[in-house]
Amino acid sequence: MSELRRVLEGLPGVDQVGLEGRAAALSTRSIKAASKAYAIDLAIRMVDLTTLEGADTPGKVRSLAAKAVRPDPSDPGCPSAAAVCVYPDMVKIAKDALGDAPVNVASVATAFPSGRSSLAIKLADTRDAVAAGADEIDMVIDRGAFLAGDLDRVHDEIVAVKDACARPDGTHAHLKVILETGELATYDNVRRASWLAMLAGGDFIKTSTGKIQPAATLPVTLLMLQAVRDFRDAHGRQVGVKPAGGIRTSKDAIKYLVVVNEVAGPDWLDPDWFRFGASSLLNDLLMQRQKLTTGHYSGPDHVTID
Protein backbone atom coordinates (compact mmCIF):
# COMPACT_ATOMS: atom_id res chain seq x y z
CA MET A 1 0.00 0.00 0.00
CA SER A 2 1.44 3.34 -0.96
CA GLU A 3 2.19 6.02 1.58
CA LEU A 4 -0.39 8.29 -0.06
CA ARG A 5 -3.15 5.73 0.19
CA ARG A 6 -2.24 5.07 3.86
CA VAL A 7 -2.56 8.80 4.65
CA LEU A 8 -5.81 9.32 2.75
CA GLU A 9 -7.50 6.21 4.05
CA GLY A 10 -6.41 7.10 7.56
CA LEU A 11 -8.45 10.30 7.46
CA PRO A 12 -11.44 10.15 9.79
CA GLY A 13 -14.86 9.62 8.21
CA VAL A 14 -17.22 12.55 7.87
CA ASP A 15 -20.25 12.83 10.14
CA GLN A 16 -22.79 13.75 7.46
CA VAL A 17 -25.59 14.76 9.82
CA GLY A 18 -23.24 16.82 11.99
CA LEU A 19 -21.65 18.51 8.96
CA GLU A 20 -24.96 19.48 7.37
CA GLY A 21 -26.32 20.56 10.74
CA ARG A 22 -23.34 22.82 11.37
CA ALA A 23 -23.60 24.35 7.89
CA ALA A 24 -27.31 24.99 8.44
CA ALA A 25 -26.69 26.47 11.89
CA LEU A 26 -23.99 28.82 10.63
CA SER A 27 -26.19 30.00 7.76
CA THR A 28 -28.76 31.39 10.18
CA ARG A 29 -26.39 34.13 11.37
CA SER A 30 -27.74 37.58 10.64
CA ILE A 31 -25.12 40.01 9.33
CA LYS A 32 -26.28 43.63 9.40
CA ALA A 33 -25.25 47.23 8.74
CA ALA A 34 -21.49 47.91 8.93
CA SER A 35 -20.60 44.19 9.01
CA LYS A 36 -22.78 43.63 5.97
CA ALA A 37 -21.12 46.47 4.08
CA TYR A 38 -17.71 45.01 4.95
CA ALA A 39 -18.81 41.52 3.92
CA ILE A 40 -20.18 42.74 0.58
CA ASP A 41 -16.99 44.61 -0.30
CA LEU A 42 -14.91 41.62 0.75
CA ALA A 43 -17.08 39.30 -1.35
CA ILE A 44 -16.67 41.59 -4.39
CA ARG A 45 -12.89 41.47 -3.91
CA MET A 46 -13.10 37.65 -3.79
CA VAL A 47 -15.06 37.14 -7.01
CA ASP A 48 -13.43 35.28 -9.86
CA LEU A 49 -15.64 36.70 -12.59
CA THR A 50 -16.19 33.73 -14.83
CA THR A 51 -17.25 33.11 -18.39
CA LEU A 52 -16.78 29.55 -19.61
CA GLU A 53 -19.08 29.16 -22.58
CA GLY A 54 -18.60 27.82 -26.05
CA ALA A 55 -20.07 31.11 -27.25
CA ASP A 56 -17.46 33.34 -25.52
CA THR A 57 -16.30 36.08 -27.86
CA PRO A 58 -13.31 38.43 -27.51
CA GLY A 59 -15.83 41.22 -26.98
CA LYS A 60 -17.49 39.41 -24.11
CA VAL A 61 -14.15 38.72 -22.44
CA ARG A 62 -13.13 42.36 -22.82
CA SER A 63 -16.38 43.62 -21.31
CA LEU A 64 -16.00 41.14 -18.46
CA ALA A 65 -12.46 42.39 -17.85
CA ALA A 66 -13.69 45.97 -17.74
CA LYS A 67 -16.35 44.94 -15.27
CA ALA A 68 -13.84 43.14 -13.06
CA VAL A 69 -11.71 46.29 -12.82
CA ARG A 70 -14.61 48.65 -12.12
CA PRO A 71 -17.66 46.60 -11.14
CA ASP A 72 -19.75 49.68 -10.41
CA PRO A 73 -18.73 52.57 -12.69
CA SER A 74 -21.09 54.90 -10.80
CA ASP A 75 -19.11 54.43 -7.59
CA PRO A 76 -15.31 54.86 -7.59
CA GLY A 77 -15.22 53.43 -4.04
CA CYS A 78 -16.32 50.02 -5.26
CA PRO A 79 -13.42 47.52 -5.13
CA SER A 80 -12.24 45.42 -8.08
CA ALA A 81 -12.94 41.72 -8.43
CA ALA A 82 -10.09 39.26 -7.79
CA ALA A 83 -9.77 37.78 -11.25
CA VAL A 84 -11.46 36.98 -14.51
CA CYS A 85 -11.70 33.27 -15.28
CA VAL A 86 -11.71 32.20 -18.94
CA TYR A 87 -10.75 29.39 -21.30
CA PRO A 88 -7.05 29.22 -22.30
CA ASP A 89 -7.52 30.74 -25.77
CA MET A 90 -9.08 33.85 -24.20
CA VAL A 91 -6.23 34.45 -21.74
CA LYS A 92 -4.30 36.79 -24.03
CA ILE A 93 -7.40 38.86 -24.78
CA ALA A 94 -8.22 39.14 -21.08
CA LYS A 95 -4.62 39.98 -20.22
CA ASP A 96 -4.48 42.75 -22.85
CA ALA A 97 -7.81 44.14 -21.72
CA LEU A 98 -6.77 44.25 -18.07
CA GLY A 99 -3.39 45.89 -18.67
CA ASP A 100 -1.87 46.98 -15.36
CA ALA A 101 -5.10 46.68 -13.39
CA PRO A 102 -4.81 44.70 -10.13
CA VAL A 103 -7.01 41.89 -11.45
CA ASN A 104 -5.61 38.45 -12.22
CA VAL A 105 -6.39 36.27 -15.18
CA ALA A 106 -7.34 32.72 -14.26
CA SER A 107 -7.55 30.09 -16.94
CA VAL A 108 -9.16 26.69 -16.75
CA ALA A 109 -6.98 23.98 -18.23
CA THR A 110 -6.39 20.20 -18.41
CA ALA A 111 -9.30 19.40 -20.71
CA PHE A 112 -11.82 21.31 -18.61
CA PRO A 113 -14.50 20.42 -17.58
CA SER A 114 -14.35 16.62 -17.98
CA GLY A 115 -10.61 16.09 -17.70
CA ARG A 116 -10.92 13.17 -20.07
CA SER A 117 -7.79 13.47 -22.15
CA SER A 118 -4.21 12.23 -22.12
CA LEU A 119 -1.72 13.72 -19.68
CA ALA A 120 0.33 15.10 -22.57
CA ILE A 121 -2.61 17.12 -23.83
CA LYS A 122 -3.49 18.32 -20.33
CA LEU A 123 0.06 19.53 -19.78
CA ALA A 124 0.18 21.22 -23.18
CA ASP A 125 -3.14 22.92 -22.37
CA THR A 126 -1.67 24.19 -19.10
CA ARG A 127 1.62 25.41 -20.61
CA ASP A 128 -0.32 27.15 -23.34
CA ALA A 129 -2.37 29.10 -20.80
CA VAL A 130 0.66 29.98 -18.68
CA ALA A 131 2.59 31.12 -21.77
CA ALA A 132 -0.34 33.36 -22.75
CA GLY A 133 0.02 35.08 -19.40
CA ALA A 134 -2.41 33.34 -17.05
CA ASP A 135 -1.75 34.22 -13.41
CA GLU A 136 -3.78 31.32 -12.12
CA ILE A 137 -4.58 27.87 -13.51
CA ASP A 138 -7.79 26.05 -12.58
CA MET A 139 -7.18 22.36 -13.30
CA VAL A 140 -9.65 19.49 -12.97
CA ILE A 141 -8.69 16.21 -11.30
CA ASP A 142 -9.26 12.91 -13.04
CA ARG A 143 -12.45 11.92 -11.22
CA GLY A 144 -12.59 8.61 -13.07
CA ALA A 145 -9.20 7.59 -11.71
CA PHE A 146 -10.09 8.86 -8.25
CA LEU A 147 -13.32 6.87 -8.11
CA ALA A 148 -11.56 3.80 -9.48
CA GLY A 149 -9.16 4.04 -6.55
CA ASP A 150 -6.12 5.04 -8.59
CA LEU A 151 -5.07 7.76 -6.16
CA ASP A 152 -1.43 7.80 -7.20
CA ARG A 153 -2.37 8.59 -10.74
CA VAL A 154 -4.48 11.55 -9.63
CA HIS A 155 -1.67 12.72 -7.38
CA ASP A 156 1.02 12.42 -10.03
CA GLU A 157 -1.11 14.27 -12.52
CA ILE A 158 -1.53 17.23 -10.16
CA VAL A 159 2.23 17.25 -9.55
CA ALA A 160 2.88 17.23 -13.30
CA VAL A 161 0.42 20.08 -13.90
CA LYS A 162 2.01 22.03 -11.06
CA ASP A 163 5.36 21.67 -12.86
CA ALA A 164 3.74 22.84 -16.07
CA CYS A 165 2.65 26.01 -14.25
CA ALA A 166 6.29 27.07 -13.96
CA ARG A 167 7.30 30.18 -15.87
CA PRO A 168 10.74 30.69 -17.46
CA ASP A 169 11.63 33.24 -14.74
CA GLY A 170 11.23 30.60 -12.03
CA THR A 171 7.85 31.76 -10.72
CA HIS A 172 4.69 29.65 -10.81
CA ALA A 173 1.19 30.34 -11.94
CA HIS A 174 -1.08 29.78 -8.95
CA LEU A 175 -2.63 26.29 -9.19
CA LYS A 176 -6.26 25.75 -8.24
CA VAL A 177 -7.38 22.12 -8.17
CA ILE A 178 -11.03 21.49 -9.05
CA LEU A 179 -12.36 18.43 -7.22
CA GLU A 180 -15.81 18.47 -8.88
CA THR A 181 -17.44 17.44 -5.62
CA GLY A 182 -20.75 16.82 -7.38
CA GLU A 183 -19.17 13.75 -8.98
CA LEU A 184 -17.34 12.45 -5.91
CA ALA A 185 -20.51 10.94 -4.40
CA THR A 186 -19.61 11.06 -0.70
CA TYR A 187 -18.28 13.55 1.85
CA ASP A 188 -15.52 11.08 2.74
CA ASN A 189 -14.35 11.26 -0.87
CA VAL A 190 -14.39 15.07 -0.75
CA ARG A 191 -12.18 15.02 2.34
CA ARG A 192 -9.76 12.55 0.72
CA ALA A 193 -9.65 14.46 -2.56
CA SER A 194 -8.97 17.71 -0.69
CA TRP A 195 -6.02 16.20 1.13
CA LEU A 196 -4.80 14.55 -2.04
CA ALA A 197 -4.82 17.87 -3.90
CA MET A 198 -3.03 19.65 -1.06
CA LEU A 199 -0.41 16.93 -0.66
CA ALA A 200 0.25 17.10 -4.40
CA GLY A 201 1.00 20.81 -4.13
CA GLY A 202 -2.25 22.60 -5.07
CA ASP A 203 -2.35 26.25 -3.99
CA PHE A 204 -6.14 26.29 -3.89
CA ILE A 205 -8.83 23.60 -3.76
CA LYS A 206 -11.96 24.41 -5.72
CA THR A 207 -15.33 22.69 -5.42
CA SER A 208 -16.67 22.50 -8.94
CA THR A 209 -16.45 23.30 -12.59
CA GLY A 210 -19.92 24.84 -12.55
CA LYS A 211 -20.91 22.45 -15.35
CA ILE A 212 -22.21 19.69 -13.06
CA GLN A 213 -25.11 19.80 -10.60
CA PRO A 214 -24.81 19.96 -7.64
CA ALA A 215 -22.03 22.55 -7.80
CA ALA A 216 -20.78 24.31 -4.66
CA THR A 217 -22.80 23.66 -1.52
CA LEU A 218 -22.27 25.06 1.94
CA PRO A 219 -21.56 21.69 3.64
CA VAL A 220 -18.99 20.72 1.02
CA THR A 221 -17.26 24.07 1.35
CA LEU A 222 -17.29 23.74 5.14
CA LEU A 223 -15.66 20.33 4.81
CA MET A 224 -12.95 21.69 2.51
CA LEU A 225 -12.31 24.57 4.90
CA GLN A 226 -11.79 22.03 7.70
CA ALA A 227 -9.34 20.24 5.43
CA VAL A 228 -7.25 23.34 4.69
CA ARG A 229 -7.23 24.27 8.38
CA ASP A 230 -6.09 20.79 9.43
CA PHE A 231 -3.58 20.66 6.58
CA ARG A 232 -1.97 23.90 7.74
CA ASP A 233 -1.77 22.55 11.30
CA ALA A 234 -0.12 19.36 10.06
CA HIS A 235 2.13 20.67 7.29
CA GLY A 236 2.51 24.40 7.94
CA ARG A 237 1.36 25.39 4.45
CA GLN A 238 -1.80 27.44 3.89
CA VAL A 239 -4.05 26.46 0.98
CA GLY A 240 -6.99 28.51 -0.35
CA VAL A 241 -10.57 27.43 -1.03
CA LYS A 242 -12.80 28.38 -3.93
CA PRO A 243 -16.46 27.39 -4.08
CA ALA A 244 -17.77 27.76 -7.62
CA GLY A 245 -21.14 27.46 -9.27
CA GLY A 246 -24.60 28.08 -7.87
CA ILE A 247 -23.73 31.01 -5.58
CA ARG A 248 -25.97 33.74 -6.93
CA THR A 249 -27.06 36.03 -4.12
CA SER A 250 -25.28 38.25 -1.64
CA LYS A 251 -27.05 36.38 1.13
CA ASP A 252 -25.44 33.12 -0.01
CA ALA A 253 -22.03 34.77 -0.32
CA ILE A 254 -22.27 36.13 3.22
CA LYS A 255 -23.18 32.67 4.53
CA TYR A 256 -19.99 31.35 2.98
CA LEU A 257 -17.95 34.13 4.57
CA VAL A 258 -19.43 33.29 7.99
CA VAL A 259 -18.43 29.66 7.47
CA VAL A 260 -14.91 30.69 6.41
CA ASN A 261 -14.48 32.74 9.56
CA GLU A 262 -15.93 30.13 11.90
CA VAL A 263 -14.30 27.04 10.42
CA ALA A 264 -10.95 28.03 8.93
CA GLY A 265 -10.49 31.33 10.75
CA PRO A 266 -9.96 34.97 9.81
CA ASP A 267 -6.64 34.15 8.09
CA TRP A 268 -8.72 32.88 5.18
CA LEU A 269 -10.92 35.99 4.95
CA ASP A 270 -8.80 37.41 2.15
CA PRO A 271 -8.96 37.20 -1.64
CA ASP A 272 -5.58 35.43 -1.55
CA TRP A 273 -7.12 32.52 0.36
CA PHE A 274 -10.80 32.45 -0.50
CA ARG A 275 -12.55 33.05 -3.82
CA PHE A 276 -16.00 32.79 -5.30
CA GLY A 277 -16.24 31.35 -8.80
CA ALA A 278 -19.31 33.17 -10.10
CA SER A 279 -20.80 35.35 -12.77
CA SER A 280 -24.28 36.49 -11.72
CA LEU A 281 -23.24 36.85 -8.04
CA LEU A 282 -21.37 40.07 -8.75
CA ASN A 283 -24.49 41.87 -9.98
CA ASP A 284 -26.40 40.91 -6.85
CA LEU A 285 -23.52 42.09 -4.66
CA LEU A 286 -23.52 45.40 -6.53
CA MET A 287 -27.28 45.83 -6.09
CA GLN A 288 -26.96 45.14 -2.37
CA ARG A 289 -24.08 47.58 -2.19
CA GLN A 290 -26.18 50.24 -3.90
CA LYS A 291 -29.00 49.50 -1.43
CA LEU A 292 -26.64 50.12 1.49
CA THR A 293 -25.19 53.34 0.07
CA THR A 294 -28.40 54.91 -1.24
CA GLY A 295 -30.96 53.51 1.23
CA HIS A 296 -33.35 52.25 -1.43
CA TYR A 297 -33.58 48.99 -3.33
CA SER A 298 -31.75 48.86 -6.63
CA GLY A 299 -32.74 46.86 -9.70
CA PRO A 300 -31.19 44.94 -12.58
CA ASP A 301 -31.46 48.05 -14.77
CA HIS A 302 -28.73 49.62 -12.66
CA VAL A 303 -26.05 46.99 -13.22
CA THR A 304 -24.57 45.69 -16.45
CA ILE A 305 -26.02 42.83 -18.46
CA ASP A 306 -23.31 40.20 -18.85
Binding site: G295, H296, Y297, S298, G299, P300, D301, H302
Partner: peptide, 9 residues
Amino acid sequence: PWLATHRDV
Protein backbone atom coordinates in the same frame (compact mmCIF):
# COMPACT_ATOMS: atom_id res chain seq x y z
CA PRO B 1 -42.03 54.10 0.70
CA TRP B 2 -39.90 51.03 -0.02
CA LEU B 3 -41.91 50.29 -3.16
CA ALA B 4 -41.90 53.94 -4.24
CA THR B 5 -38.10 54.20 -3.99
CA HIS B 6 -37.46 50.70 -5.36
CA ARG B 7 -35.52 51.07 -8.61
CA ASP B 8 -37.05 47.92 -10.06
CA VAL B 9 -40.62 49.19 -9.76
